[in-house]
Structures are given as structure tokens and as C-alpha cells.
Design a binder for these strands. Structure first.
Length: 145
DNA sequence: GACATGATTGTTGAC
DNA sequence: GTCAACAATCATGTC
């Protein structure tokens, strides 16, 4: 917290710039660095947004702007109490734990690769690792109701 | 057809 | 300690 977000807090104008900046470097455009690298885990806010987007779509089926969903989600998020955020935070932490495990495996693969591991091996390793859901944790609790 | 943009907050990683 | 980048989403616009 604290140090994390500052631009959005200081002036929402910057948020746009920031967003644009981030998007400017879209992973598709420039991110071929580590395609196997585990993606960042969603923060509590993003976990919340996963559900909020569905709800928002149901309430606003005509809405096509993701920006509108973001705004509404952000406002709603701020209106939530810590207790209401708790379940989302818990899920986010769960994702984070999973992410850490994936990162550990990913780093391990990198280390092995640097040691001169046959590409065949690496390739195999990739299949073993997978990015998500395959961690065998079944962590995707996802309360798929 | 493929990619960038729009908005949001939180977290991580790098310096 | 601070800041930039990136995580999801998807219709739409631009090239």
C-alpha cells in the first residue's frame, strides 16, 4: 500500500496518462521477453472487478465501454467497507500465493536454462509447468457456483 | 487483420 | 522510498 499508487491519487489526470502509458506498452506489442512468465496475480480490486463486470453487464447490457465499468467499479470499490472487501482480499492473496509458486518454478526453469539445459528439456518443462490452473493446487477455488 | 485506447485500483518490481 | 508498469475487460477506431 502507501507507496504503491500515487499518480492516481495525486491527480486523476495522471491516471489517464499512466493508463495510456501502460497500455502504450501493451504486452502484445512489447512483452515477448518472457511469454512463459507467469502473469501477475489480480489484486483484490481486480478480483472484485471480475464479479462486478458481470453484474454491471447485467444491469447495463447496452454499455459497451470498459471505461464505464472501470469507473463504476472503482466507485463501488471505494464504497465497500473493509469487511466487504475481505473476501476479495482473501482471494487475491490466494492468487498471489499461487503466483509465487509459479514464479518459483519459472525462475527455476530460467536457472536450469542458463545452466545449459537442452531445449527439449526446457520445452518439456514448459508443458509441465503451464501457467495456471495446472499448478495442481486446484487453487482456482473460483467458487464456480 | 492487428493493435491501441478508454478507466479503474492494487501490487509488484526495479531503481 | 518512490515511481512505472502491468494485471482484466471488450467494443471501437485507426492504420
Amino acid at each position: 500500500m502507501k507507496g504503491g499508487r500515487s499518480r492516481a491519487d495525486e491527480n486523476d489526470n495522471d491516471t489517464k496518462l499512466k493508463s495510456r502509458g501502460a497500455r502504450a506498452g501493451k504486452r502484445k506489442a512489447k512483452a515477448p521477453k518472457d511469454p512463459n512468465k507467469p502473469k501477475r496475480p489480480p489484486s483484490a480490486f481486480f478480483v472484485f472487478m471480475e464479479e462486478f463486470r458481470q453484474q454491471f453487464k447485467r444491469e447495463n447490457p447496452n454499455n459497451k465501454s470498459v471505461a464505464a465499468v472501470g469507473k463504476a467499479g472503482g466507485a463501488k470499490w471505494k464504497s465497500l467497507s473493509d469487511a466487504e472487501k475481505a473476501p476479495y482480499v482473501a482471494r487475491a492473496e490466494s492468487r498471489k500465493t499461487d503466483y509465487n509458486k509459479n514464479m518459483t518454478a519459472y525462475n527455476k526453469k530460467l536457472a536450469e536454462g542458463e545452466n545449459g539445459v537442452d531445449e527439449n528439456e526446457s520445452d518439456k518443462s514448459k508443458s509441465e509447468v503451464h501457467d495456471e490452473d495446472e499448478d495442481g493446487t486446484g487453487e482456482e477455488d473460483e467458487d464456480d457456483d
